[in-house]
Design a protein around this nucleic acid. Structure first.
Lengths: 192, 192
DNA sequence: CTTATTCTGGACCGAACGGTCTTAAAAGTT
DNA sequence: AACTTTTAAGACCGTTCGGTCCAGAATAAG
């Protein structure tokens, strides 16, 4: 005998992700969220608990949305190095708007991780996933003879993780486009 | 017939830099600044204008403090590649506290650059300086026969800038130390 | 020592902050 | 259709925000 929800919590979470992603945690006020989510303030608190919990939920949502595609991209059968290259180039080749927004994980790592244990944990998990996926891909590349056996897959994967994070930072500025594209191409020569 | 200043504006600016660097712009309140600078609220406004202007001044101060050392490090006579390697390894090898604090430029790029024109400009200038210094160094390395002529100094410099920014981001998390050290070593093989 | 000047500390400002609560409407059950 | 339950909207809470103002202390010049 309960009344049905009138809004879609999933869509609301998505809207919250959009806001936090674009403006960061501190600069996004509850008033912004009320407007952006299109639902009442009380409903936000009833559904998500607090601004902080909502942010963490948005962070998880971001991971859920991006991890599977990444994993699939890197574990396709056939040659793997082209997939890795495509991934890095996609990060580096994004349009101005995407570049400005950056990566939600990067943004969280910088703004919250140093003084927010819960946020830091999720960032770390995210890096772990990416590093593991890249390492597995590079190991497979090695096994398939695409990569000289002399390379160290784990260290190479870590280099790519760090590079991708750097791309998301430098990409935030106006001249970031050319900068990160050059950087990506240089780093990718390590895969030859 | 004027009363002398009772505090050192330079020291105050330094304290402001410390606070903004560690907590970011939004999370640092004027109350924090009053306490951290050890001077009256009104004196802060009289001296620096506003919170935002104070932040920009702190940003300039950061650049003034770090740019000369960097430039000197990279333009010492003799072999240049060892200096470049030492620079990257120093970034990657910092202790937990420094790693958590990260780089003030990185923090500004992520938190403010997307929606703060003035801050974005200064970040860009900072990247320009670093890229230029690294490019000059790599050109010198090439001229001195340290670097194969086939490499592209500017692109390589851009890669290092992006890498350094990535190091500052990934370094913020608990397991960042090993990650960024591996990443740095891998990237540095591009200089061989 | 007086006077003119300027800096200091803190009270104070309206606005915005994150979060709570009340009220009334809407929907499922009977 | 009546009743119960849960939702939604927004008024409202105390607090903190960035920023201003003012009274008084401190200083240099006369």
């Amino acid at each position: 005998m309960a009344r049905t929800k009138e809004f879609d919590p999933d869509a609301a979470l998505q809207a919250a992700l959009e806001l936090f992603w674009r403006r960061g945690y501190e600069a996004t006020s509850m008033a912004d969220l009320v407007e952006g989510l299109g639902i009442a303030r009380a409903s936000i608190y009833a559904t998500f608990g607090s601004k902080h919990e909502l942010y963490l939920r948005a962070l998880e949502r971001y991971n859920e949305q991006h991890d599977p595609g990444l994993l699939a991209e890197l574990s396709q059968p056939g040659p793997v190095l082209p997939a890795v290259r495509a991934l890095v180039r996609r990060y580096a080749g994004m349009g101005d708007d995407d570049r400005k927004r950056g990566c939600f994980i990067t943004n969280t790592a910088v703004e919250l991780a140093p003084h927010d244990e819960a946020a830091a944990r999720r960032v770390e998990v995210s890096y772990d996933h990416l590093e593991t996926a890249l390492t597995a891909a590079l190991l497979r590349a090695e096994a398939q003879g695409e990569l000289p056996a002399v390379r160290e897959p784990r260290a190479l994967a870590r280099m790519l993780v760090v590079l991708l994070q750097g791309i998301r930072v430098v990409g935030k500025t106006a001249e970031g486009g050319p900068r990160v594209r050059d950087a990506a191409e240089q780093a990718l020569t390590l895969l030859d």
